[in-house]
Amino acid sequence: MPELLSLRDVSAAYGRIQALSHVSLSVPEGAIVALLGANGAGKSTTLNVISRLVPQSGGEILFRGASIAARASHEVVRAGIAQVPEGREVFREMSVRENLELGAHLRRDARGVAEDVERAFAYFPVLRERYRQRAGTLSGGEQQMLLIARALMARPALLLLDEPSLGLSPLLVQQIFGIIRRINEDGTTILLVEQNVGVALGCSSYAYILENGEIAHHGPSASLAADGAVQNAYLGGH
């Protein structure tokens, strides 16, 4: 499969704190690739470097073969990369509707946007009920759904998901990952950051394990899932 995104030797730092060193990874078109690792390993930093929220101090990021190093965050969204950030980064005082419309901020095709709102409702029917409600009043799970729906409103080729299972009940995690699979089957490539290793390895085809800002291990998800040593060493033995 052709490569959609690749990172080559990417490094990043917060002041004197080195958060990433020489991270290389590759996301083939159509795949779900998992990026795993303990708290503080540098997973969010990796996604934020891709989204241009955190500057890289070295290396190269290629999207569809072209470097995005000189791009601003909104240009990366326009190029086709949308991120679902960790935490509950909704526009709290705005309605669900306005949140979704903001997801389509860079688009001018009103009809296409309206279609995509319907598509979001198909994935997340609860958002239809909450359409006029303020996003801040939604439950944690509903906010997570809104975040995913908002990112999809940009019609991204690549979706970056940062810990979508965080703080959700096991049942809700099941449900959300079912939808993530559907989104992927419908044609969106996904780079998935997770601490919930079991679920992440279950739905991805390839996985990278970050440790202290470096890729410590990588391989097909099925073989990582079967490799007890890897699980024990890097992932807390879940």
Partner: peptide, 11 residues
């Protein structure tokens, strides 16, 4: 309201 989210939606 949320500068990070604003950047992520392409503002």
């Amino acid at each position: 309201m949320n500068p990070k989210a604003a950047a992520l939606v392409g503002i």
